[in-house]
Nucleic acid binder design. Sequence first.
RNA 1: GCGGGCAUAGCUCAGUUGGUUAGAGCGCCAGAUUGUGGCCCUGGAGGCCGUGAGUUCGAUUCUCUCUGCCCGCCCCA
Length: 416
Amino acid sequence: MMNIPKGTKDVLPNDSYKWQYVEGVARDIAKRFQLKEIRTPTFEHTELFLRGVGDTTDIVTKEMYTFKDKGDRSITLKPEGTAGAVRSFIENGLANGVLPAKLYYITPAFRYERPQAGRLREFHQFGVEIFGAKGAQTDAETIMLADSLLKALGLNVKLFINSIGCKQCRAAYNKALKDFFAPHLNELCYDCKNRFEKNPLRLLDCKEETCKKINASAPSIIDYLCEDCNAHFTELRAYLDLAGIQYEIDPRIVRGLDYYTRSVFEFVSTSIGAQGTVCAGGRYDGLIEELGGNPMPAVGFAAGIERLLIVMEQTGVKIPDPAVPTVYLAGMDAECRQKAFEVATKLRLAGIIAEIDHMDRSVKAQFKYADKLGAKFVAVIGGNELSEGVMNVKSMATGESEKVAFANAVEYFFNK
RNA sequence: GCGGGCAUAGCUCAGUUGGUUAGAGCGCCAGAUUGUGGCCCUGGAGGCCGUGAGUUCGAUUCUCUCUGCCCGCCCCA
């Protein structure tokens, strides 16, 4: 028996409508904020992610699906959506078009990780990227968009924000961090000793108890923001207040991707175990230049669709039922089935959801089947009906029947 | 990459102190005197009891291995 690769999932017919619903809501919200969809390839040159995501990040160093293609090119399945969107933006000259470019995508992404609740090797993201706008108002709008999406999906989540500054203030802060941690260096965990050298920011992020105790009193990045970054962060908060969005400042969120600058944020749900971050993002003013474009500010986020669905499931959010047949046409014998087929065709061409028997079932069995499908009406066509040119239409909800001429079928079922 | 738990029907799970035809509920299919669903009743299909090895006269049951799944760490959406 062939089975599905580790860390992947089938979306079965009984669940796919949930995905369609979430994607539909996301597209709606995107439209409301005037974002346009961008679709980029599932794989890119490995180099793009090395430079875009950061070659010291965990994602790049140990989680990418990288392989050589038959032309000996190093190819990588996208581990996130931003790098590809930025590449496309630059390569297609969208930077010379109307700005800001407000984009969104729904894409699979791939990371070689140990699967667990809310974490798969192939997962799906709804992502948003806004290129060209530097003001905090745009950060606020991006957060507002994410907030609207989560609310539209009926989720109750908490928003945490922070600013991790720009290159200049980060340098000052890294120095302050090193000064703070230096005396504790041998109390820190193995990872943190490395972080101390390579990326002191990430020391704040450690989940080890002893490290947590130490970094609880570490200096806060917010106190080290340069004048511009500080003003930007203040402005962001003002705009969030203006939008009526509740948030909490968490100086410990630093994000695991190298490209972030200034604003970073996470929407966290407490109802799904360890992988509670349902949506996260921030500003990345250096990335477009890093990937070869002219310097241009950018801000965005990604939401994990599987995680959204898990939270919705756990909290009992109602998803609208999938479409059911307006009418099931039950034919009694071969001739009647043919008539059923004919009427169904007419109804379908008129946009009415109609279903017929495909299994040569008895009328009784057809009724059971129609009931399982959730059909609103069953139209019985037997010898008697055929000779009268009518079908016997039964409402499955009330149990009442009436005769409807074949000629009036479309008219009868329209808007039912 | 590290740690813990679990693998029996499509699903949720019993069970076998080692013994011949392995069970329930749900789901699926059909029937209940032949043209009508839901509830109830009856019947049916569907399992190499995760893989490989060991112990044994005999293993789904005991031991080990592998694999897979779940949960946590790490990381992230």
